[in-house]
Amino acid sequence: TTITITINGEELRIRGDHEEIHKILKAWEEDHNDEEIVRLIRELAER
């Protein structure tokens, strides 16, 4: 699965399995701050 998210003008492409993507979207849905979401995404992007 690949998704693209733009946060603060920075486009981040994430490839991951369903569970990893779900974790990010769940954090977003629960209204975590952008920095935390960006950190989760970067961790995935670095793999």
Results as ranks from 00 to 15, higher is better:
I24C: 02
I37W: 04
I41H: 01
K26F: 05
E11R: 10
W28K: 01
L12C: 04
I41L: 15
V38I: 15
L12S: 02
E46C: 05
T1S: 11
R15F: 15
E10R: 07
I21D: 00
G9E: 04
W28C: 03
E11Y: 05
N8P: 01
I24R: 02
I3A: 10
E35S: 12
T2M: 13
I3Y: 01
N8A: 08
N33K: 06
T2Y: 12
D31I: 06
H32L: 11
R42V: 07
E35A: 13
R39D: 05
T2C: 06
E36F: 12
I7N: 01
T1M: 13
E30V: 11
E29M: 13
I3W: 01
W28T: 02
I21T: 03
E43I: 08
R47Y: 03
I41W: 00
R42M: 10
H32F: 10
E20Y: 12
G16A: 12
E36L: 12
E30W: 05
L25E: 02
D31H: 14
H22W: 05
I41Q: 00
E43V: 05
K26Q: 13
E36H: 14
R15I: 15
I37Q: 01
E43T: 05
V38D: 04
A45S: 07
R47T: 10
L12D: 00
E43F: 03
K26P: 01
T2V: 10
R42Q: 12
E36G: 07
I5W: 00
I5E: 00
E29Q: 11
L44A: 04
I37C: 03
E30Y: 08
L44F: 04
D17S: 15
E11P: 05
E43W: 02
R39Q: 09
D34L: 15
N8G: 11
T1W: 03
E19A: 11
L40Y: 01
H32A: 12
I37N: 04
I37G: 01
I7C: 06
R13Q: 14
H32C: 02
L12E: 01
I41D: 00
R47M: 11
I5S: 00
R13P: 05
E29L: 13
H18N: 11
G16L: 07
I7W: 04
E10D: 06
E10H: 07
K23R: 12
N8M: 09
D31R: 15
G16K: 02
N33H: 14
R13M: 15
D34Q: 09
E36N: 15
L40W: 01
R15N: 14
L12R: 04
E19S: 10
E35G: 08
V38K: 13
D17W: 07
G9V: 01
E43N: 07
I5G: 00
E29F: 13
H22E: 12
E35Y: 06
E43L: 13
W28Y: 09
W28D: 00
G9M: 03
E29V: 08
R42S: 07
T4V: 14
L44P: 00
E29K: 04
L40N: 04
L40I: 14
N33S: 11
T1G: 09
I14Y: 02
I14E: 00
G9N: 08
D31V: 06
E11V: 12
I14C: 03
T2F: 13
N33Y: 15
T1L: 14
L12G: 00
A27W: 10
N33Q: 08
H18E: 11
H22N: 14
E30G: 08
N8W: 06
E36R: 11
I24K: 03
E35D: 11
E19Q: 10
E46H: 05
E10L: 10
E36W: 13
L40C: 08
E35L: 11
G9Y: 03
E19F: 09
T2I: 12
K23H: 08
L25N: 02
T1C: 12
I21P: 00
D31M: 13
L25D: 00
H18D: 08
T2P: 04
E11D: 10
E11L: 12
T1A: 12
E35R: 06
K26D: 10
T2K: 05
I5D: 00
L12Y: 09
I21V: 12
I7Y: 02
K23M: 07
R15M: 15
I41Y: 00
V38A: 06
I41P: 00
R15L: 13
E29T: 09
H32V: 10
G16M: 06
L44N: 02
A27C: 09
L12V: 10
H22L: 13
H18K: 11
A27H: 09
I24F: 04
T4K: 08
D34H: 06
A27Q: 13
I41N: 00
E46K: 10
A27P: 01
L44C: 02
R15K: 10
E11W: 04
R15V: 15
A27G: 08
I21N: 01
E19W: 07
N33F: 15
R42P: 01
K23L: 10
E10K: 13
I41V: 06
E35P: 15
I21F: 04
I7R: 02
T6C: 14
G9C: 02
